[in-house]
C-alpha cells in the first residue's frame, strides 16, 4: 500500500481555470505534488495562489479543470476530502477567548475525536509546538508566533495526510518566522504529511522541496529551488545607469548577450560574471554608476521567466 501511495501524486492539479466574473484568476494551471513533499506556491499578490488554495481546501468550486487531492476531486467530493486535509488560513483561526487546550479540544470535536484519544492528541500536539506549559492560558495572552503555531496544531489535530497553509508567516517578525518554519519541518517529519504552502517570500520558498512559481494566474516555473536557479546560466549582473533602455540595447549588440532594462537598472545573466564586468565597465566608461555580480536567486528566476520584477509597483501599492 505504501508503495502504491508513493507512486501516485498526493495532489494533482489539472488545467485549473478560475474566473471572478470577467477577471481570470487562474488560467489553466497544472502540476503534481508528491507524497510527503514540502511544496511551495510562490507568487506575488494577485498571482492566483490564494484562489488555488481556496479550491484545494474545498471552499470554492473552480470554473474549469480539476484539483484531485488524495484521489478525491475537491469540487465533487468535498466532504470525503475534508477528513484528510488540514488547512491553516492566512487569517488567524484560533479563538483568543479560549485556552490553547480548549481550542484544540474544539477542533478535535469538529473532526469526530473525543474522550481519552482526544486528550492524548491535545497533549501531544501542545508538546510538538512547545506550548505544553501554556495549555490552560487564554490564547489572547500569547505572542503572534505562539498563536500561529497553535493554528498549525489545529490543522494537524486529526492527522491529515495533506496540510495546506496560506501565507502562514503573515504578520510575524523574522525570528518568529524562522521558528515557525522549524516547527513546520519537524511537524512534517513527525506527522509524515504532505505540505503545500503559499508564500510571497523568497527566503521561505527556498526552504521548500519543490516550488511552483505563479504569475498572473499562470504557472511560470516548477522545480526544486536549486534546479530553478541553475537554469540561469552562471551569475546575475546588475548595472545601475541613467539610461537603461539604450545601454541594454548597446550591450546586446556588442556582447551578444541578453540584457534586460528594469527600472533604472540593466540586468543580464552570464557565466564567469566577475570577469565580464571588467569588460563591461571598459566598454561603456562613465555610463555605469554601479555594478554588482551575484549568484542567481529565486527572484532572478521569476524575472527570467516573466520579464518583470516580482514586486511591480502596482502589486506593491495593492499591498
Amino acid at each position: 500500500m505504501e508503495e502504491h501511495l508513493s507512486s501516485t501524486p498526493a495532489v494533482s492539479v489539472q488545467e485549473l481555470v478560475h474566473h471572478y466574473g470577467e477577471r481570470a484568476a487562474l488560467n489553466g494551471v497544472s502540476f503534481d505534488v508528491r507524497p510527503a513533499e514540502m511544496f511551495g506556491l510562490l507568487g506575488p499578490n494577485g498571482s492566483g495562489k490564494t484562489t488555488l488554495f481556496r479550491i484545494l481546501s474545498t471552499l470554492m468550486v473552480p470554473t474549469g479543470g480539476k484539483a484531485v487531492v488524495l484521489g478525491h476531486d475537491a469540487a465533487k467530493e468535498p466532504s470525503a476530502l475534508r477528513r484528510h486535509i488540514g488547512v491553516v488560513f492566512q487569517a488567524q483561526s484560533v479563538d483568543v477567548k479560549l485556552t490553547a487546550e480548549e481550542n484544540l479540544w474544539h477542533q478535535g470535536h469538529l473532526y469526530g475525536l473525543r474522550g481519552a484519544a482526544l486528550k492524548a492528541r491535545i497533549h501531544e500536539m501542545l508538546g510538538h509546538i512547545g506550548l505544553a506549559d501554556r495549555a490552560k492560558d487564554k490564547v489572547e495572552t500569547f505572542s503572534g508566533g505562539m498563536q500561529r503555531r497553535l493554528d498549525v496544531a489545529k490543522g494537524l489535530m486529526h492527522r491529515p495526510s495533506v496540510l495546506l497553509l496560506d501565507e502562514p508567516t503573515t504578520g510575524l517578525d523574522p525570528a518568529a518566522r524562522r521558528d515557525l518554519w522549524q516547527y513546520l519541518n519537524s511537524l512534517r517529519q513527525e506527522e509524515a504529511v504532505t505540505v503545500i504552502v503559499t508564500t510571497h517570500l523568497m527566503e521561505e520558498a527556498e526552504r521548500c522541496d519543490r516550488l511552483a512559481i505563479m504569475n498572473q494566474g499562470e504557472l511560470v516555473a516548477l522545480g526544486t529551488p536549486l534546479e530553478l536557479k541553475h537554469e540561469i546560466g552562471g551569475d546575475v549582473i546588475t548595472l545601475e545607469t541613467t539610461n537603461p533602455e539604450t545601454l541594454a540595447e548597446r550591450i546586446r549588440s556588442r556582447f551578444v548577450v541578453e540584457a534586460q532594462p528594469l527600472g533604472n537598472q540593466v540586468r543580464l545573466e552570464r557565466e564567469q560574471g566577475h570577469r565580464f564586468i571588467t569588460d563591461l565597465v571598459e566598454a561603456f566608461p562613465g555610463e555605469i554608476q554601479a555594478i554588482s555580480v551575484s549568484k542567481p536567486t529565486l527572484e532572478d528566476v521569476f524575472i527570467h521567466r516573466t520579464g518583470h520584477r516580482f514586486w511591480t509597483e502596482e502589486s506593491e501599492t495593492k499591498g
Binding site: L59, F89, A91, S93, D95, Q107, D151, K154, G155
Partner: peptide
C-alpha cells in the same frame, strides 16, 4: 479565520 476553519472541517 475561525469560520473558515469550521467550513473546511
Amino acid at each position: 479565520g475561525f469560520l473558515l476553519s469550521v467550513l473546511v472541517a
